[in-house]
Amino acid sequence: MLDHFATEFTTRYIDTADAEGQPLERLERLAMLVATDERPDAERAVRAWATQSTEVHEVQAQIDRTRIEYLRGLCQQLAATPEDSSQMARLLHLVLIGVQHSNPPVTGEELRVLYAFILRKVLGDDQTLDEERR
């Protein structure tokens, strides 16, 4: 079950995001994939399970490291400094975790808009893709 979760909610996202494009396009594609996934309960359930099981906690920690490293790799090509890329990667990852615990729930469209806002503010309006260029 944990292997399926890691594959479905991390590896598949990364492989799809990496299919083509520049770092910003891949980052925006990843944000769209995450925002449009209609299974947010799976992430919440595994995180809750990780509080009860050392084995699950270790797997979840590895999944988080994989996600943050992938984001950091993309952000390194966009951010001004290595520290900025690390912080940007952590911010994007923590937003995902936070919205999954929000009540009322954050919709996929709200998450997409939030990620677009973060990218605009962190990278500057001139670096992010606008709707006409997609």
Rank of each mutant, 00 (worst) to 15 (best):
M1N: 04
A6W: 03
A6K: 00
T7G: 09
F9Q: 12
T10G: 04
T10I: 12
T11N: 04
I14G: 09
D15G: 01
D15F: 07
T16W: 06
A17L: 11
A17R: 14
D18P: 06
D18G: 04
E20Q: 14
G21R: 11
G21C: 04
Q22L: 15
P23I: 05
P23G: 09
E25T: 14
R26P: 09
L27Y: 09
L27A: 08
L27R: 10
E28I: 03
R29G: 01
R29V: 03
M32V: 01
M32W: 14
L33S: 10
V34W: 09
V34F: 04
V34K: 04
A35H: 04
A35L: 13
E38N: 10
R39A: 10
R39I: 03
P40F: 00
P40S: 03
P40E: 01
P40H: 02
A42R: 13
A42H: 12
E43K: 01
E43W: 10
A45I: 06
A45G: 08
V46H: 07
R47C: 03
A48V: 00
A48W: 00
A48I: 08
A48P: 02
A50R: 05
T51A: 08
T51D: 08
T51P: 02
Q52R: 13
Q52L: 14
S53L: 00
T54C: 08
E55S: 12
E58D: 15
E58K: 05
V59G: 00
Q60P: 06
Q62K: 09
R65E: 10
T66Q: 14
R67V: 13
R67T: 15
R67Y: 01
I68N: 05
I68K: 09
E69C: 02
E69I: 00
Y70I: 04
Y70T: 04
Y70Q: 02
L71I: 07
R72Y: 11
Q77N: 01
L78M: 13
L78T: 07
A79L: 02
A79M: 13
A79G: 10
T81P: 15
T81K: 11
T81A: 13
T81E: 03
E83S: 14
D84E: 14
S85I: 03
S85N: 11
S86M: 05
Q87N: 15
M88H: 12
A89V: 09
A89M: 05
L91R: 13
L91T: 15
L92F: 07
L94Q: 15
V95L: 12
L96E: 13
I97S: 06
G98V: 05
G98W: 00
G98E: 06
S102D: 04
N103P: 03
N103M: 05
N103T: 14
V106F: 00
T107K: 08
G108Q: 12
G108F: 06
E110R: 09
E110G: 12
L111P: 01
L111W: 06
L114W: 01
L114C: 10
L114P: 03
Y115I: 05
Y115R: 04
Y115W: 05
F117H: 10
F117G: 11
I118R: 07
L119P: 05
R120T: 13
L123A: 08
G124Q: 11
D126M: 06
D126F: 09
D126E: 15
Q127D: 10
Q127Y: 02
T128A: 10
E131H: 07
E132W: 05
R134L: 15
R134N: 04
